[in-house]
């Protein structure tokens, strides 16, 4: 499903010469997530959680090693091979990334329209999804008119409307009070129960304690478990204890 193999990642640097590269944001990251798993991605700010997520949803390609997502080895795959894989991945961003000039309905419908679903069959699905996240009354509102929690739910609806095989969430509870955060986690667990592989990056220890699951712990761009070849599932308890 998702496999990292000795992954190294550098961002383009800001040095005087074009082509300079910065420090390694990730180094020697190796793990594999089986289909249908739920995984916490833990670590302090700057540890590389977002970089791992961006590699997973193909917003980046590794500078070293290999990242395999949904069967595609992304390091050297042709550029045209990436969009079909991206359409099978749902992402909930910390800053939501909703399109402010589209209504809630149109924002949620985006993945279906990109997949070429006919308008007639799309309306029922989007309406059902909005009911699921409790926003059917706001279908015609624009995102800036919504509260943070409501925008968060729109982002979730957009991430899962096309029943992705892989669902990623980056600090999804950062803007929510604890009741909304629990509700969100329940939604993510529900998706997982329906068969979606879920990865959630967070530094909210309380949330992790409430929903125990295998975890990957990042520290300064490396997986904390030095013997990470065992994969996160063997190291589950260590990860939780040290988070």
């Amino acid at each position: 499903m998702v496999r990292f193999e000795a992954v190294g990642l550098r961002y383009p640097g800001t040095g005087p010469h074009r082509g300079d590269w910065g420090e390694e944001a990730l180094a020697d990251v190796t793990f594999a997530l089986p289909p249908g798993s739920f995984t916490w991605l833990l670590g302090p700010s700057g540890a590389g959680k977002s970089s791992v997520l961006r590699l997973m949803h193909l917003a980046l390609r590794p500078t070293r090693g290999e990242v395999e997502v949904l069967g595609l080895r992304t390091a050297r795959a042709p550029r045209a091979a990436l969009p079909p894989i991206r359409r099978r991945i749902g992402v909930v961003f910390q800053d939501f990334r909703l399109l402010p000039y589209l209504s809630v309905f149109d924002n949620v419908a985006l993945p279906l329209r990109l997949a070429g679903r006919p308008e007639a069959s799309l309306k029922a699905d989007v309406t059902e999804m909005l009911r699921w996240v409790g926003l059917q009354a706001k279908a015609l509102a624009l995102p800036p008119e919504l509260s943070g929690g409501e925008q968060q739910r729109v982002a979730i609806a957009r991430a899962v409307i096309h029943r992705p095989d892989l669902l990623l969430a980056d600090e999804p509870t950062g803007n929510l009070d604890s009741r909304q955060a629990r509700r969100l986690l329940a939604l993510l667990r529900e998706m997982n129960r329906l068969g979606t592989t879920v990865v959630v990056a967070t530094h909210d220890d309380e949330l992790v304690a409430r929903f125990p699951a295998p975890s990957l712990l990042l520290h300064e761009g490396r997986l904390h478990d030095p013997d990470n070849a065992r994969g996160p599932f063997a190291a589950e308890d260590d990860g939780l204890a040290e988070a």
Partner: peptide, 16 residues
């Protein structure tokens, strides 16, 4: 730019 990055991330092809 932001909207294009969102659509690109959702799997829009360059041709779209």
């Amino acid at each position: 730019r932001d909207a294009i990055e969102v659509l690109h991330g959702l799997g829009a092809r360059d041709a779209d």
